[in-house]
Structure formats: C-alpha cells, structure tokens
Simulated assay, not measured.
Amino acid sequence: MLKRISRLRNAKINSVGIASVFQAGDTNEINMRIKVLADQRTIALYRDDEGSFNKKEYQIFRQPAVMPLPETGVQSAFCHENPSIRVRNVKVQGVSSASVVQIGSTSIVLGDSRLKHIRQIVTPSSQSQQP
C-alpha cells in the first residue's frame, strides 16, 4: 500500500448512510456490508404474521456475494514526487448503502449491498374498499 500524508482542508458531507464510510487518511482494508428489507405502504394495514423476517423467503439474502476476480498480470510503477495527497474542498451530498469516500490510500476495499424493497401501493379505486 502506498503510504502518504492526506491533507484535507475542508469537507462538507450532508449524509453518510448505512454501512458507508468517509475516511480521510490511509487504511489497510475497508469492508462495508449491508442487508436491508424495506416495506412501504400507502395505508397502514398489517397482518398478524408481519414483523418477523425470515430470510429463507427472500433468496437475495441467501445468495453468496459475487466477487470480482483479482487482477493478475498487471505491472505498475509509481513515482510520487510529493509525499502528500492535498485536497482543498470536498462537498458530498450523500454516501449510501455500503459505499466509501476516501482521501488516501487503501489496499483492499470490499462492499456488499443487498436490498429487498416491497411496496404495497393501493390504487384510488381500491382505497374505498378498505375497512
């Protein structure tokens, strides 16, 4: 890993979400993981069996993450005349769902994000039939 000094004058970050990282400086490894199940409804009608999360019902949470093959056969050479990374200003609106913003060097960055979003939107004609 390349080791340099990271100099950051000003950082303005609006939001850093679930399993996300904002890092100023070097690190050896960053590993972000997230598994989310979201449910959105227009009308709050709930059944008795809701509230328990059984991941057997949702295959996306059981599947192994697809990892890219490591790079092979790549030769590179770096010559850093200046031993520091200088950043004057960074403005980030959002870092979300196993993402990373880093000013510095990293050897290994791993990220795994899964999301199952269920929406139960009721049409205007079926709203009148609700109790």
Rank of each mutant, 00 (worst) to 15 (best):
M1K: 12
L2C: 01
K3R: 12
I5F: 04
S6H: 03
S6I: 02
L8Q: 05
R9H: 10
N10Q: 12
N10I: 04
K12N: 06
K12M: 00
K12Q: 07
S15P: 00
V16K: 07
I18T: 13
A19I: 06
F22P: 04
Q23C: 12
A24M: 11
A24H: 08
G25K: 10
G25H: 08
G25M: 10
G25N: 10
D26M: 08
D26R: 05
T27M: 07
N28I: 03
E29F: 07
R33C: 11
I34C: 14
K35D: 14
V36E: 15
A38D: 13
Q40V: 13
R41G: 10
R41W: 09
T42Q: 12
A44E: 09
R47F: 05
D48G: 07
D49P: 00
D49T: 10
G51N: 04
S52L: 08
F53V: 09
K55S: 11
K56R: 12
E57S: 07
I60Y: 02
I60G: 00
F61W: 00
F61S: 02
F61K: 02
R62G: 06
Q63A: 08
P64M: 03
P64K: 07
P64H: 05
P64V: 01
V66N: 08
M67D: 02
P68Y: 03
P68T: 03
L69C: 05
L69Q: 15
E71T: 13
G73W: 04
F78I: 13
C79V: 12
E81G: 13
S84Y: 08
R86A: 11
V87D: 09
V87P: 06
R88C: 06
N89F: 15
N89L: 13
N89P: 05
V90Y: 01
G94R: 00
S99T: 10
V100R: 02
V100A: 05
V101Y: 04
Q102F: 03
Q102R: 04
I103P: 01
T106Q: 00
S107V: 04
S107E: 14
V109T: 12
G111S: 15
G111Y: 12
D112S: 10
R114H: 03
R119H: 14
R119T: 15
Q120S: 11
V122Y: 08
P124Y: 03
P124N: 02
S126D: 02
S126M: 02
S128E: 06
P131G: 13
